[in-house]
Nucleic acid binder design. Structure first.
Length: 111
DNA sequence: GTTATGACTGCGA
DNA sequence: TTCGCAGCCATAA
């Protein structure tokens, strides 16, 4: 169905909203949770659109697998993503999430 | 209509 | 170990 495509974006937002405060996850983890590990790029694209959506989508809690803030440039100002994360207690250094493995949140296990 | 690109990831050399 | 390439799918030109 063509609604499946829409659902993909919708589910990205849903999962992203489930990310606990002070935790982060990766595009690949979300994509894998949605059933398409290779569709990580679509996750990023969906989050790009999410910045213009009504309601709060913590897209700043989604980084790449290395913990790098690759999407910071899409928040209007490059520092916005970092500041949002630090506001939640996530330490960011040189566009990289410190202790990424530790605060990583897996959508599949939700822990 | 086709081509190029993108907030990525995994695997092979 | 690091480096390069293919695959994923939607949007833009």
């Amino acid at each position: 169905m063509m609604n499946d495509k829409k659902d993909f974006f919708h589910r990205v937002y849903e999962v992203t909203r489930l990310i606990p405060r002070g935790r982060v996850t990766s595009y690949g983890a979300i994509a894998r949770y949605l059933g398409d590990p290779r569709a990580a790029r679509m996750v990023g694209w969906a989050l790009n659109q999410s910045t213009c959506l009504p309601g709060f989508v913590p897209a700043h809690r989604v980084v790449n697998r290395e913990g790098l803030l690759t999407g910071k440039h899409h928040f209007g100002y490059a520092e916005t993503m970092k500041q949002l994360l630090e506001q939640e207690g996530v330490v960011v250094n040189h566009d990289r999430v410190v202790d990424f493995k530790r605060i990583f949140w897996d959508p599949e296990t939700m822990e």
